[in-house]
Amino acid sequence: MEDVFLLYARIAAYGFRRHSAYRAAALAGAFTNSVFGILRAYVLIALWQARPGLAGYDVTDAVTFCFLSQAFIGPMQVFGGGLQLAGRVRSGDVAVDLLRPASLQLWSLADDLGRAAYLFLLRSLPPTFLGAALFGIVVPAGPAAWAAFAASFTLGVLVSFALRYLTALSCFWIVDDQGVQSLSLVLTLFLSGMVLPLNLFPGWFGELTRTLPWAAMVQVPADVYLGKRDVLEALAFQISWAAALLALGALATRAARRKVVVQGG
């Protein structure tokens, strides 16, 4: 048990190091995320000045939401990708991964958590501090609130991994995964709260978007940060989706093993 933990901890550390080889890209990402954060903040400020209290947020809440969502882009890989798996399935290199006495899913997860930790440092902190300095943002009061946010953020990364893993696995069945990738991108952008807070969507549609797994990625951690949501209920929501999607990923991995099409010599 301890061995197993140590193995995956090593793999996570490797994910962290692997990404640190691409520091320039991470810094460029941080810059882009910050600039877009500022642009979006102005749009949201205008919107909230016209309609104060919209979605249950005041202006500062809305600006905070904006910079938080920008900060989530890197670690939660909101624009998709982040896993090498899809490429390895396409090239057939996954045959080597399948040989290893380890779970493909846990392996990918550990690697992805290492990646997320690195991108948290390089791509989440800069836009958040910039937003705080330029506009002023909400700051959670006390260690309990911070701990709740840390848990919710980590669960957000987990759900994001689970969804991206399923997307990557689809390469086992379909040769050209571009359609799946773009569908997943659109769903993630709109249903996570990245483009607009989901609280803005009215009626049954809004209700639906707040129940789907993508909400666990941006909307829920942001609401936990802002203290807009019952913490236990929010974490339970995220845990349920993470568990369901990871279980689906495990089933899909097993199915892929049985009917794999591993390309090439």
Partner: peptide, 25 residues
Amino acid sequence: FGQRTTLWWDLPLKDSFQLIRYLYK
């Protein structure tokens, strides 16, 4: 597999061996 590698592309060779040590206990 001569045409593929089990080694980690971005890691020094000896680190790949360490990971393999953990992997194969």
